[in-house]
Design a binder for these strands. Structure first.
Length: 218
DNA sequence: CTCCAGGGGGCCA
DNA sequence: TGGCCCCATGGA
């Protein structure tokens, strides 16, 4: 299994994915923040629901670290309600803006190298490996390969299985050119592949193999 | 009706 | 560490 070859085939089949969609409202820092908010809200949630929550946050003037820090937990919950798990996610957003303030904001965090930034993010309550890596890749535009359940299924379709998140991540990072734009697009394409495969109607590893070969042929 | 999304924390052996 | 359970909405 050559990750670069699979990438090219996925790109040919599914085309540009346009991740990460952000509202063009408030400059680079605002966009970075919105990506972080989206990364937290999309945990085990459909992106269509996350979009509604993001619209609500803008309308409530809450798409801003200081506004979220000052907002009541009730107001925050009602804004993000459509994204689900709103009790947990309201706390997570509060924890994240507290973290941002404690670390001097995006400018200061941006000076960190990827390993330090990753450790720092993982220390925040509510941020696990995938959310941390999504923030590093899509908000900070630094090179890290995001792993999700679809990525594991993709590897599994080649009978490649690892125990830990980082083993999956390093499998790709060690076999691909260190290219942020490509890693950005690759993760989005894998999600597109996963959704397409599900639309085909699925389940077993065999079906997943057939589904991927179908992609490779085209 | 069931299933499950662009996960993560807590608990317990 | 590894396995479970919990969190919750909304589209298919």
């Amino acid at each position: 299994m050559n990750p670069l070859t699979v990438y090219k085939k996925l790109r040919k089949k599914f085309g540009p994915q346009h991740w990460w969609p952000v509202s063009q409202v408030s400059g680079v820092r605002g966009q970075m923040f919105e990506v972080c908010v989206g990364a937290i809200l999309t945990q085990a949630a459909a992106w269509t629901n996350v979009e509604k929550a993001i619209v609500n946050l803008h309308r409530a003037r809450l798409m801003d670290p200081e506004r979220i820090a000052k907002a009541s937990i009730a107001k925050l919950k009602s804004a993000i309600h459509p994204a689900g798990y709103f009790n947990q996610k309201a706390k997570k957003l509060k924890a994240f803006v507290r973290f941002l303030d404690a670390h001097g904001g995006f400018e200061k965090l941006n000076k960190m190298k990827v390993p330090e930034l990753r450790e720092t993010l993982l220390a925040v309550w509510g941020i696990g490996p995938e959310t941390a890596d999504s923030i590093i890749l899509y908000a900070f535009l630094k090179p890290i390969f995001v792993i999700d359940t679809y990525t594991k299924r993709l590897l599994a379709s080649f009978d490649i299985r690892f125990k830990t998140y980082d083993e999956h991540r390093l499998f790709f990072e060690n076999r691909l050119p260190r290219n942020v734009k490509m890693w950005n697009e690759y993760h989005a394409l894998i999600v597109a592949w996963g959704k397409n495969k599900k639309a085909d109607s699925i389940g077993s590893t065999q079906t997943e193999q057939l589904s991927l070969r179908r992609v490779q042929r085209q």
